[in-house]
Computed example of a mutant assay.
Amino acid sequence: MEIREFEQRTGYFPSLEEYRMIENYYIDFAGDKDAFCKAYKKNEGGLAEKIQRETNDQRISALVKTNGIMEQFKNTIDKMEDQIAKLEARIEQEQEWKPYTSERNVAQADYEELAKDAECGRTSHYMTDADAIAWICDEFDFDPCKVTIIHEINEYEINRHQRLRKTNKKIDRRPVYCATDYHYIRFNTRRNYYEILNGELRPFFD
């Protein structure tokens, strides 16, 4: 019996999973397809209930088996991820990554030495963006509308093989002023990157 024949005779539209079970019962049924479908519709001897119950049991069994396989996969993946993490840690240690500042830029240590008292305003202070822009334009004749003060720069690291990488961290580079010959400002124009150290205008390389 084909599934469409069963549907026409019973008005019930089973899933393929259910119909496979219906087929099993039909093969063992003592009668033709019409008699079987009639018995199914009337649930004679609990026929329809038995088919549904056995289908449900089969579905649950398959689900349990699938969940078991998925759990095995998960355990395997967890072990592999743990191994990968350990290998990455070993590689990281072997490569000896260290903070890096381009030799063409102002060293972070030099900036920090200048800015070390800026928070308390003792020997230096952080400039406002407006003050920094005004100072830049007075000294170097930039158009103030095209100047943007930068407060942070990207952090880079270098390894023992002289390879560079950008980290996800930022480094403080707020404009700092101590004296006319002792200050730092990092800024961009629309086309170029600059920094000023102690009155010297320098290109900034990122």
Rank of each mutant, 00 (worst) to 15 (best):
E81M: 15
Y156K: 11
H161D: 06
P99Q: 07
A134Y: 03
P203R: 11
C145M: 10
T123F: 11
Y177T: 05
E112D: 15
Q83M: 06
Y156S: 06
Q108D: 00
T128N: 07
K41W: 09
E23I: 09
T167Q: 03
Y126W: 13
N24L: 08
I171M: 14
N154P: 03
G45C: 15
K170R: 15
K33D: 10
F13D: 04
A134G: 06
L47A: 04
G11H: 12
K42L: 15
T167K: 05
G11C: 12
C137H: 00
Y193T: 02
D110L: 00
Q83K: 15
T148S: 12
Y184W: 02
Q72M: 09
I27P: 04
E195S: 02
F6C: 02
E155D: 11
M21C: 05
R53M: 06
F204T: 09
Q8L: 14
F142Q: 02
K50R: 14
E119D: 10
R4T: 14
D34F: 10
C145F: 07
Q108S: 01
I69W: 06
L16M: 10
Y26V: 06
W135D: 10
L114Q: 04
I149W: 05
E200W: 00
Y19I: 13
E119M: 07
D141F: 05
S102H: 00
N159M: 01
Y40D: 11
S102A: 04
N198E: 07
R104P: 00
K41Y: 05
E23A: 14
R9D: 05
Q95C: 04
F29G: 14
V176N: 04
D32Y: 07
I51T: 08
A179E: 14
R160N: 11
E152P: 01
S102Y: 03
I158A: 01
R59I: 09
N192A: 13
T123N: 12
I51G: 10
A62H: 03
R59S: 11
A62S: 11
C37R: 10
R165S: 05
E81T: 14
K116H: 06
N188F: 14
E17V: 12
E54N: 15
Q8T: 07
D117Q: 12
D206C: 05
E157I: 07
G68V: 08
F36Y: 13
E195N: 03
Y26S: 12
C37F: 12
I77Q: 05
D28V: 14
Q162G: 03
R165E: 05
C145D: 07
E94W: 15
L197F: 06
N56V: 08
L63P: 02
E157T: 09
E92I: 02
D129I: 02
V176D: 02
G121S: 09
F73V: 04
I60T: 08
I3P: 00
K146M: 08
G199D: 08
P144N: 01
G45L: 15
I3D: 07
D78Q: 12
Q162C: 09
T66G: 05
H151V: 04
M1D: 06
Q83Y: 13
M80Y: 13
R90V: 04
F73M: 13
E81G: 01
I3F: 01
E103H: 10
E18T: 11
R4I: 12
E92P: 02
Q108P: 01
F140C: 06
I196H: 02
E18P: 05
Q108I: 00
F205N: 08
E54K: 14
W135F: 11
A48G: 10
I51Q: 15
E195M: 10
A118K: 06
L87C: 11
R20I: 09
R4P: 00
T167F: 01
